[in-house]
Write a protein that binds this DNA or RNA. Structure first.
Length: 114
DNA sequence: TATTTGACATACC
DNA sequence: AGGTATGCCAAAT
């Protein structure tokens, strides 16, 4: 096998959780980080998302910041792409922010509670 | 090996 | 209400 580092386990771990996000649901970077036991590494979750381009099966549009704000929309092909995807799932977005965020919020630490 | 970066979060002004 | 500052921690350079 090549010496390629492949994807660090950390990224894959984040991706796995994000992949488990049900449709019409959203979560926050901190929630995922918290579930992984790295509550202080919320930034790393976003970082992992940036690398998610290697895996299109990751619904990165379902991951937003704690305010339900589409902070990462600029990282999609088009800034409107993220909003579009969320709206396609029945999630309303107002001013780049998810409406009723708490209602759509999906916390892995609760839903996947071990 | 050291420095910079960053799709966050929290605190402060 | 909105901008600035700091902490956090791993990846990228």
């Amino acid at each position: 096998m090549g010496t390629e580092a492949g994807s660090s386990d950390f990224f894959e771990l984040v991706w796995q959780v994000v992949r488990l996000i049900p449709r019409s649901r959203v979560t926050s970077y901190g929630a995922v980080a918290n579930y992984l036991g790295m509550k202080r590494s919320a930034r790393m979750v976003g970082y992992a998302m940036n690398a998610s381009h290697d895996d299109p099966t990751i619904p990165a549009h379902r991951v937003v910041n704690r305010n339900g704000l589409l902070t990462g929309k600029h990282h999609f092909g088009k800034p409107d792409q993220m909003e579009k995807l969320l709206k396609a799932e029945g999630i309303k977005v107002k001013e780049d922010k998810i409406v009723n965020f708490e209602k759509y919020f999906w916390d892995p630490a609760v839903e996947l509670k071990l």
